[in-house]
Amino acid sequence: MNTFVEITERPVSTDEVVARLANPANGAIVTFIGVVRGLTGERETRHLEYEAYPEMAEKTLRQITAEIYARWPDVRAAAIVHRVGRLEIGETAVVIALAAAHRAQTFDALHYAIDRIKEIAPIWKKEFWADGAAWRSEH
């Protein structure tokens, strides 16, 4: 298995994340790109601030890739990069890339990856609006 995980304060390039998976055995690479949303319903977000417990977050991301390899054995490589710090609307917060010889298992594995990150990775986001701010969680 080829695994790369990173919590970074730098802008995230999807191409660079995908390049981590380069291998002639790959026939399919799927990516999820999470970007900063400026509108939630009627409410306008000005910017977001992401915070992580970096050592544990990277360990958790690695654990999630191990869960994926166990459940979807065709997936042979994974790269997950999550940005922290202040992000503007439209900027990339997270890129997940998974590679396999064939596409069949990659979509379910990708869906699992982002759901699992939101569930257990020690990463937080704070939304800033014109009239306030709040930490956001779906759990």
């Binding site: 939101k118 990775a121 020690p122």
Partner: peptide, 10 residues
């Protein structure tokens, strides 16, 4: 020990 409030990455 880390005090971990509800997470919300992604």
């Amino acid at each position: 020990i880390a005090c971990i409030p509800p997470v919300g990455g992604g």
